[in-house]
Design a protein around this nucleic acid. Structure first.
Lengths: 206, 206
DNA sequence: GTCTATATGGCGATAGAC
DNA sequence: GTCTATCGCCATATAGAC
């Protein structure tokens, strides 16, 4: 069913997201994208000229969706545990609904490292500021010599990986789809405390 | 320089690992693999018949390398913190030296979920046993109602993701290569305590 | 077992009618 | 803007000589 409210260009972009998700850059076929969009293959080239351009358009959109909220959450002046609740709530939910975006970014950035800088600039993503905010927030809450970079790596790992590696985890642990959804749900509640306990006692002796 | 000690078949396999790593299944070219092996393209087909077969051979090898040690570590009767030290020491080091393997497995499993079962069988990987061992180990150390599946997901996330997402993390945080190596080194020491603190207080009130 | 040469098909991209 | 038809290339795979 073709939705007539959308222009061809929008339909192509939507279709491209879907196909690049499932197949990656090399696996995606311009023909598949055209089919998914319900239009002709030549039209894809008419609007985007070539495959790389179309990829970058999709990538840019994905990147901004994934990162835009992170700055906002971590530069607020709420307590760290609240920030973590907001982060995991938003981020896991988002990655779950758009697993392809995380894949896409991880994969795409491998081949196009320079493009990342441009996107960070366009998205006004200022890592120094976020890391500094995390440091101050943790110090204010009694953590001595916090390592904001480890902190960031940890929370990204804990939220992104289990979703991205879903087929592997499900296969390894023999979990069905319904239970897997419950698993993600419970993670959202479980992780903020997990992280806070781990960092709060950072400098205490065992 | 061609090492004459290796047969053509071995040379092809080694070359295939390298090329599949860098380019994934769709991006890899049989010609590139032949070139990297220093032999003729037709020989690759002579030994492996087609690309999929060659991929599966490489995948199988990668999977067994990555998982073989995990069972051993977690079914011992050492304290959990010791197990974690062994796990992160081995696993992060391994993934770091062979980042392509982790990629490869994560990517490959998406398209070939059934193949995972066969590999688990061949590698005598028994998740039930490992999860049960983790549960008992944690209970013995005072954790009430531990969730071994969350536990496994967490430690895999914390070890695999930062290595797999290296280009993204480095780009986001503007870290140079040397500092990144130091970052991984310090993680190995840092993570066992991080995880133990987080789970040990699992059921305590804030 | 190892090579050269070639078959075969698919894909990105474009030309050109409407 | 949208389509059909087609070009040109490249990749997997095979045939067949040595």
């Amino acid at each position: 069913m073709v939705n007539r409210k959308y222009s061809s260009e929008e339909k192509i972009l939507e279709a491209a997201k879907e196909v690049f998700h499932k197949r990656g850059f090399d696996g995606a076929r311009m023909q598949d994208i055209a089919d998914a969009a319900g239009i002709n293959k030549a039209l894809v080239h008419y609007y985007f000229r070539n495959k790389e351009n179309l990829f970058l358009a999709v990538f840019k959109d994905a990147f901004s969706k994934l990162t835009s909220r992170i700055s906002i959450i971590f530069t607020s002046d709420k307590p760290m545990e609240t920030k973590l609740e907001e982060f995991f709530e938003y981020h896991i939910g988002f990655v779950q609904k758009n697993a392809y975006i995380a894949w896409f970014i991880l994969n795409g950035i491998y081949e196009r490292p320079d493009y990342l800088k441009e996107l960070m600039f366009q998205n006004k993503l200022l890592p120094e500021m976020i890391l500094q905010q995390i440091r101050e927030s943790l110090e204010r809450e009694g953590v001595k010599n916090p390592d904001p970079f480890q902190f960031m790596a940890n929370i990204l790992s804990l939220s992104v990986f289990p979703v991205v590696a879903r087929p592997l985890l499900q296969g390894l642990m023999k979990i069905n789809n319904d239970d897997m959804e419950l698993f993600y749900k419970s993670r959202v509640k479980y992780l903020p405390g997990f992280v806070m306990r781990a960092v709060k006692n950072d400098q205490l002796p065992k």
